[in-house]
Design a protein around this nucleic acid. Structure first.
Length: 572
RNA sequence: GCGGGCGUAACUCAGUGGUAGAGUGACAGCCUUCCAAGCUGUACGUCGGGGGUUCGAAUCCCCUCGCCCGCUCCA
């Protein structure tokens, strides 16, 4: 805790206490003891999150990139879409989520590649010296090699779902090792769980050298440190096999059985890919264009922790931006940079926000580029936690769905191809590439809260939530300095006027209870940026004081200028 | 998943076998002409939950749930 504060100046315990006390975030099902990995938003948190979601929607869909041109020199075009949490189970088979997340998985710690533990095949090389048929002298060299390996430890490994596949993958390596010996011709697949591999000497004498087997889970668990990673080729680079059940199962239909199993989506993106063809066919969009989709997703996180950071139910704001393959890298860079600017614009400016380009070996097999927008949360400091990933997904997803569903995902680009005699274009058919800026709204809210939280011991109310005015859940408060001499009536009138004008953006509060200092303090904790106070002078000269949350400074403005002042500060 | 810590009022916490407390906050009233001021009063407790030991459990024991931290992990 102490080190946490030293690094960010902020205590997560204090932030969580404030979130509870002021109604930003509550534990889900708290009166029943809570439920692991789920959190609810209180009134202020719900409004804060709505403001964040609205900001995303406005800046990504309604007026993409604040009206800036894309790398093609034309305005960025995006349309919204709303797809279901529950999709046909085949969607998740096509996307790879079911196979990827329902079986014991092993990761290569170095290359970050993950694979099913039961797909790890290994060649077990035997102790040739102890038994087995004699082998010609010309092979002495590799026999010595073989002796270096202990029986039972897979020497060569591959990831494949059948032995046939594994053999294909491993044979080139075997040939390399047994240079000059024709190994492949003498592979005998005995049955579908293992294969024996032989070599032949010059006299056609056969010698058994290895057994290819799926590595049993028990062995994997016990000897994981001694098994070479099929990716890095090094021992000790594989994690223990672990059961991942990241997909949330559910059953569709009132009388449904296991046969009616469906899944709650782990990401909103697949709904967009699945409807890509419909959007193209029915809305006159032209590539390049984006499809945005916000909504709730579910993952059975292995370790939900760090307040709301890794919740099992969370909301995403994802844009799938489709473009021609040749232009995809330009768009990738464009979106990466814009998304960084966007987070800065709503208050995450400064050293706590970074853009991190993934290393090559960190990338998914289909991605040519991925960046994370990361925030230094108090609980990640001095490190950072991911807010948004901007991924170049290539044509992977559309291709997967084309293969699994049989639906053509090709786009007919009528602005490309050779020029025809009539001046038109022949057109070009291709599966578009996709750039995906995928933001976590709940993580965004948490980052905004952490960034906003500040303590100033010199103030009578030390805790202040310094939200950017655009996302602050309470936009303004109106106070009569004292609850008499006609001030409450003037305050009521101003409050009604401001509410009428700004209700879309957030709450406008009014408060006449207790001392003025206490009322300012309450608003500081809630993150309300501006307080307007009606005092004795108001009654004579029609001015009010505006108190700035962050500085505590006051200025006087005409009561009829308050709405204009707020418009300038909070937009709208 | 492993290890450690914690769980008592809305918040922060005291209470280690004998009548559940304090400060803050909230609410109401008085007062108050700019920063959690003062006075009076009020409300708020499954002591995380369940079981056990005991004449008696917030307190001791067992189980369980939740949160935090470290390791691990985060497609």
């Amino acid at each position: 805790m102490a080190s946490e504060e030293a690094k960010t100046g902020k205590s997560m315990d204090a932030i969580m206490a404030l979130c509870k006390r002021r109604g930003f975030i509550y534990q889900a099902s708290e009166i029943y003891g809570g439920i692991n990995g789920f959190w609810d938003y209180g009134p202020l948190g719900a409004q804060l999150k709505k403001n964040l979601r609205d900001a995303w929607w406005e800046d990504m869909i309604m007026r993409p990139c604040w009206g800036k041109n894309g790398p093609n020199g034309r305005p960025v075009r995006c349309v919204p879409l709303e797809t279901r949490i529950i999709q046909h189970p085949k969607v998740w088979a096509a996307s790879g989520h079911i196979s990827g997340f329902n079986d014991p998985m092993v990761d290569d710690k170095e290359t970050k590649q993950r694979f099913r533990a039961d797909h790890l095949c290994g060649l077990y090389l035997r102790e040739v010296a102890s038994d087995g048929p004699p082998i010609g002298i010309q092979y002495q060299g590799f026999i010595n090699d073989i002796r270096e390996f202990r029986a039972g430890d897979p020497e060569l490994t591959a990831v494949a779902s059948t032995e046939g596949e594994a053999l294909e993958l491993l044979m080139p390596q075997l040939k390399k090792r047994f240079k000059g010996v024709d190994v492949s011709a003498h592979v005998e697949v005995e049955h579908d769980v293992q294969a024996d591999i032989y070599i032949h000497d010059a006299n056609q004498q056969r010698a058994w050298i290895a057994k290819l087997k799926m590595i049993p889970l028990a062995l994997l668990k016990e000897r994981i440190a001694y098994i070479k990673s099929p990716f890095s080729g090094k021992m000790g680079h594989l994690t223990d096999p672990r059961q991942f059940n990241l997909m949330f199962k559910t059953i569709v239909g009132a009388t449904g059985t296991e046969d009616d199993t469906a899944y709650l989506r782990p990401e909103t993106a697949q709904g967009v890919f699945v409807q890509f063809k419909n959007v193209v066919d029915t809305t006159r969009v032209k590539i390049p264009f984006g499809i945005g989709n916000t909504g709730t997703s579910f993952r059975n996180e292995v370790t939900p922790r760090n307040f709301t950071f890794r919740s099992r139910e969370f909301e995403q704001a994802e844009l799938e931006f489709f473009c021609h393959p040749d232009e995809s890298f330009e768009w990738y860079k464009f979106w990466r940079d814009f998304r960084m600017d966007w987070w800065k614009s709503i208050g995450l400016a400064g050293d706590n926000l970074i853009l991190r380009e993934h290393e090559k070996d960190e990338l998914s097999h289909y991605s040519v580029g991925t960046s994370d927008v990361e925030y230094r949360f108090p609980f990640t400091a001095p490190g950072f936690g991911e807010l948004e990933g901007i991924a170049h997904r290539g044509c992977f997803d559309l291709t997967q769905h084309q293969q699994h569903s049989g639906a053509k995902m090709e786009y007919n680009d009528t602005e490309r191809g050779e020029i025809l005699p009539n001046g038109g274009r022949r057109g070009e058919r291709y599966i578009p590439h996709c750039i995906e800026p995928a933001a976590g709204l709940d993580r965004g809210v948490l980052a905004l809260i952490c960034e906003a939280y500040s303590r100033d011991e010199s103030r009578p109310s030390p805790e202040v939530m310094k939200f950017h005015p655009r996302i602050a859940p309470i936009k303004a408060a109106v106070f009569p300095l004292v609850a008499k001499e006609g001030m409450p009536e003037v305050a009521d009138k101003l409050h009604a006027e401001l509410s009428q004008r700004f209700w879309r953006q957030g709450a406008i509060e009014i408060d006449e209870k207790q001392s003025i200092g206490k009322r300012y303090a309450r608003m500081d904790e809630a993150g309300c940026p501006y307080c307007f106070t009606i005092d004795g002078d108001t009654l004579t000269n029609q001015t009010v004081t505006v108190r700035d949350r962050d500085s505590g400074a006051q200025e006087r403005i005409g009561i009829d200028k308050v709405a204009a002042f707020l418009t300038e500060k909070i937009g709208g």
